[in-house]
Write a protein that binds this DNA or RNA. Structure first.
Lengths: 334, 334
DNA sequence: CACATCTATGCACACGTTAACAATAGTCTT
DNA sequence: AAGACTATTGTTAACGTGTGCATAGATGTG
C-alpha cells in the first residue's frame, strides 16, 4: 500500500538498513548516498510509519494533556489558553492528546508505551489519584495550576493566594471595610487558595467578616448571581464583594443592576482570572490575572526537557499574578 | 519491561497465539481457556501495546481534531464546545489529537497510518487545501462549521445565513430602519454567510443600508469597539447595529457606554453565537445561538460510523440556529 | 472400523522500523 | 607488505501483536 524504506531500498539499490540510517541522518552513511536516498524518498512521497517506529524505539510521540474535567467546571478561556500554551512548544515533535480525567473509568491504559509524557492541568484534589498513577508508571509528568504533594513531580502554577491577597488589600486600601466573599467551587484547590489570600488580607488589616458576608459558589455565573442577591437583602449591605472568579463576578454585577443599583457606585466588585471579556463588560472588571498560557508553556518546556534528556528535574515554579485595576471598584471616602 | 502476551502465555502454558485470541474474544478458543487467560492477564496487569497493534492491524486509534488556527481568531467558547462535543462520543475507543491547521508546514505527515479519521472544524476557505489532502489520502473525514465544496465529504454545520436573517428581521420588526453592520473576519466563511443573511433581510423588507453603515471587523472585541466608535461619529447615527459575533457586540456596547450613551435606549445591538457570557452582560445580549456542541457531536458520530462500517456516507447536515431575545434591542415606536 | 468433520490449539510469518554485529574494501603504520 | 584500523554497507534479529495454515484430538457417520 504505502511506501516503506524497503521500497526505497530496492530503487536505490541498497539495503533497507542503509535507507533507515540515511533518513535518520546517521554519520555512518556517506554523504552522497544519503542525499541520493533522500531524493528518492521525497519523490516516492515516503512517510515513516510511526507505529513501527514506536514499537522499536519504545516512544509513542504522544503527549497527554489532561484536564480535571471536560464536561463541567472548566472555563472555556482557561482551557483554550492551556492548550495554546502547550501546543506552542511541542511543534511537530509530538501529538497532543487531550483528555478529561473524569472520562477515565480506569487508568489502566495509561502506560509508558502510550504517552511519552503527560501534562496534568489539575483543578481538583481528586486528581491526586491519576498523578500518583502516572508517577508510579514512571511516566514523565508536569502538574500545572495546582500545588501537588507528591514529591518528585514537576509543578508549575501561579501564586493565587498572593493574587487574592493583592485584590482584597486593594479593596481595603480604597476605603472599604464591609467586604463580602463569594467562594469558589468546593474541592478545587484554587478556591481554597483564593479564600486564604482573602482571609490573610482581612487579618492583616484587621477587618472582620461576618458569616452573612460569606457565600459559597460554583465558579459559574448562576452562583455569583444568587450570592449577590443574598447580599443585597441584608440590612447592612457590604460595600465591596470579592468574587473568586470573573464569571461569578459577572453574575454578581448582573444581580446588582437587576436590583436597580449600580457598580461601582452602590457596591464594588472584584473578580479573579482576567477572562477575555473582563475588560469589556460595563463597568470594566477589576480582577487578578493568572498567566495561564505562560504556565502551560513553561510547564511543557520543562516536561520536554525531562523527556528528551532522560533526566528527572523536579521543581516547583510559582509564577506571579497581577492585579488589573479597571472600573468596578469605587474609592470610598469616609 | 512491561507484560506482553508471551509472558501470559508462558504462565498459562499455552502459545501466545491462544492468548491473543482469548483476549480478543475469538470464537476459536474454548470458553474456560479464555476465562483462565483473562484472569492471568488481569493479575499481571497486562496492557496491550498499541504501537504493535497499530502496526499489524493498520489502525492508529487516533482521531484528529483540526482547527483552522489555535493561535488567533478562534473564540475560546467555540473551541471548548467543539472539543467537548467530539470527546463525548469517542469514549475510550480513540485518542483525540488536537491540532491547529496553521501549525502544519506540510501535510506530508497526515496519512492513513497516523489517523483513523479526522474532524476538521473549518473556519476559513484556506482550509480547502488540507481537506483536499485528507480526501486524497482516503482518510475518513467530516468537515464541521463551514460548507465544503469537495463532494464526497461529510459536512455538518449550522445554517448561519438563516440565523443572521432571523436576527436582522427581528431588528426591523422592532421598528428599526437605520441599521448598521459590523462584519466578521475576512476569509471566514461564517463572515460571508452572516452578512448574506443580513443582506437578504434588508432586501426582503426593502431597507437600504448606506456605505457608512458598514464596517469591517475581525471577530474580536477591539474591532467591534472601533467600528461602533465610527458609527457614533455619524450625523445620522444608526438606531441598531448588527454585529457578526458576540465579542464584537461586547466591544460595541462598550463604545456606546464610553460615549455616555445607553444600550438599548440610544442604540440597539444584536450579536451572534450566544457565547456563555451573552446572558450576563448588561444589558443582556440578544443574539443567535449556533448548536456547536451538537454539530461536533453529530459530526463525530457520523465519522465514527463511516470508519467502523468502512462505508463512505456523504451527507450535508444543516442544523437550525435560534434567535435568543434578551435586552439589547429596543422596541422603536414611530 | 475407516473415514470425514469439527474443535481447540500451535507454528511460522508478517507488519515497518532500528540496531548489534558481520563483512568488505580501502587506508595507514611500521 | 602484513597487520591494524577506518569507512561504509549488509545480514539478521528484535519490538509485540494478529492470522493463515497445519495439526492433534474428539466426535460423528455409515
Amino acid at each position: 500500500m504505502s511506501v516503506t524504506i524497503k521500497d526505497i531500498a530496492k530503487l536505490a539499490g541498497v539495503s533497507h538498513t542503509t535507507v533507515s540510517r540515511a533518513l535518520n541522518n546517521s554519520p555512518l552513511i556517506q554523504e552522497e548516498t544519503k542525499e541520493r536516498i533522500r531524493i528518492i524518498a521525497e519523490q516516492m512521497d515516503y512517510t515513516p510509519n510511526y507505529s513501527a517506529k514506536s514499537l522499536v524505539l519504545d516512544r509513542s510521540y504522544n503527549l497527554g494533556l489532561f484536564f480535571t474535567t471536560l464536561s463541567q467546571g472548566t472555563s472555556a478561556g482557561f482551557f483554550y489558553e492551556a492548550i495554546r500554551g502547550v501546543n506552542s512548544v511541542i511543534q511537530d515533535r509530538y501529538q497532543l492528546i487531550v483528555k478529561g480525567i473524569d472520562d477515565y473509568t480506569s487508568f489502566h491504559s495509561i502506560t509508558r508505551k502510550s504517552f511519552d509524557g503527560i501534562v496534568v492541568v489539575s483543578q481538583s484534589d481528586d486528581d491526586q489519584a491519576i498523578i500518583d498513577h502516572i508517577a508510579s508508571k514512571g511516566i514523565p509528568q508536569v502538574v500545572l495550576n495546582r500545588p501537588v504533594e507528591t514529591s518528585g513531580v514537576l509543578n508549575v502554577l501561579s501564586d493565587e493566594e498572593q493574587g487574592a491577597f493583592l485584590a482584597a488589600s486593594y479593596l481595603i486600601e480604597q476605603g472599604h471595610k464591609r467586604i463580602a466573599l463569594i467562594e469558589g467551587r468546593k474541592g478545587f484547590k484554587s478556591a481554597q487558595n483564593r479564600k486564604d489570600g482573602f482571609e490573610r488580607a482581612m487579618r492583616h488589616y484587621q477587618i472582620t467578616v461576618p458569616p452573612a458576608y460569606r457565600m459559597p459558589g460554583l465558579y459559574d455565573l448562576e452562583s455569583g448571581h444568587k450570592a449577590m442577591q443574598q447580599f443585597l437583602t441584608l440590612d447592612e449591605r457590604p460595600t465591596a464583594v470579592f468574587c473568586c472568579n470573573d464569571e461569578m463576578a459577572l453574575g454578581a454585577m448582573k444581580a446588582v443592576s437587576e436590583a436597580g443599583m449600580n457598580v461601582p457606585n452602590d457596591i464594588s466588585v472584584v473578580g479573579f482570572d482576567d477572562t477575555v471579556f473582563a475588560a469589556y463588560v460595563t463597568p470594566a472588571l477589576t480582577t487578578v490575572r493568572r498567566p495561564i498560557e505562560q504556565i502551560s508553556r513553561e510547564g511543557a518546556l520543562r516536561l520536554l526537557g525531562n523527556i528528551e534528556n532522560k533526566q528527572h528535574e523536579t521543581e516547583q515554579l510559582l509564577l506571579k499574578t497581577e492585579l488589573i485595576v479597571r472600573e468596578s471598584v469605587r474609592l470610598l471616602t469616609p
